[in-house]
Design a binder for these strands. Structure first.
Lengths: 199, 199
DNA sequence: TTACAGAAGTTAACACCGTTAACCTAAGCG
DNA sequence: CGCTTAGGTTAACGGTGTTAACTTCTGTAA
């Protein structure tokens, strides 16, 4: 009859929340434990150490992001349509689930050094989907890109820029937010489609 | 006759180096102090606290980046030429001075929350120069961009992506590095110049 | 010459941190 | 009934940022 949320999941949720609310630096095992009403050492029953806990958090977020994008993009058969769906859903995810989205970029740097490459690659399904979509578009003569792997990286960076501006509320107050988002995505997309120079 | 490098500057240099070499997490006041052959508390004679020390480090890096870009871009009178010079020198700086460049992005997130906005804005001269250059190009009918502030942000993000790939040696081994850099910059630039769609 | 002020450093201590080792306790099972 | 195991606990380690109180040197004014 009880709720029975496993402690492991509680820890993850509390950590994610604390991370979003108070930042990485003030996140401590003891603080997490206190919120879960448990001793600090109990966390070590489920996670090797603090880094591993953070990695799990990242992994979860990346997994969710991938699933989110796949759900919207995979059904599209037209490669350009799929390309657009990927970019659009990436931004949507960031705006709808900032707690999860920010973890992907916030924690990084430091704990990331020891983040096992294998897992990283495995989790980046969305990125790989983007690469494949670009490759397909190139084959169909709809895009001109000589290194899809690199182009995908660049697109990711651009989209992250868009999401960041909005999440950090750095948007000029005169700019309409939704319009900004739509136009930004459109610009990212258009930047990669086949066109000719005027002169 | 002695060298007489002020302790304050020594601390900054040691910190920058440790940060680059061992990452943010393992950077401690005591470790810095030991390398400077001084007690840990001496650092507090020159910096309010650890955050402030990091802010100073960031500020220095951003200042250097700005100067680097200005030196190469300001002489150009043609707005498109200036635009190209900005993008090119941004990437150059990142590759030539990775210790300084990485600090700008590495530390961020956490200490950044309390980073005074004023200083931040003041230091981003390079960013502002880019915005002005875009605005000028738009006035001259050479670019089609409706929010230069946003476009500049996007360009920054793209360039950062390029630098990151190279610095982290994530570049596919079959790709020629210099060619990659040149083409990437070119793509960023072209993405903002006036063109028409083929169909 | 002496008295004093300020600069540049020190030591000792506090509260907090991640992590380990050793211990406890209840549940399930042969 | 006894044993194992899962899921916790407490106590302790060495390390951390930071503070308060102190020393020690250097220049200057009386």
């Amino acid at each position: 009859m009880s709720e029975e949320v496993p402690l492991r999941d509680q820890i993850l949720e509390i950590s994610r929340h604390l991370l979003y609310e108070e930042g990485y630096k003030s996140l401590s095992m003891r603080k997490i434990a206190k919120q879960a009403d448990v001793s600090a050492t109990s966390i070590y029953l489920y996670f090797e150490n603090k880094d591993h806990l953070l990695h799990t958090l990242i992994e979860e977020s990346v997994e969710d992001l991938s699933r989110f994008i796949e759900k919207r993009a995979l059904p599209k058969t037209d490669s350009i349509e799929r390309f657009k769906a990927i970019t659009k859903s990436y931004v949507e995810f960031g705006l709808q689930q900032p707690e999860k989205y920010e973890i992907i970029y916030k924690v990084r740097s430091d704990s990331m050094a020891r983040y096992p490459k294998e897992k990283f690659r495995k989790a980046r399904r969305a990125y790989e989907l983007l690469v494949k979509t670009i490759e397909e578009s190139v084959r169909q003569g709809l895009m001109e890109v000589d290194k899809p792997v690199v182009a995908a990286y660049s697109i990711w960076a651009q989209l992250h820029g868009v999401v960041s501006v909005v999440l950090n509320k750095r948007l000029d107050s005169r700019i309409n937010q939704e319009q900004f988002i739509e136009e930004s995505i459109e610009h990212v997309v258009q930047g990669f489609l086949i066109r000719t120079t005027v002169s």
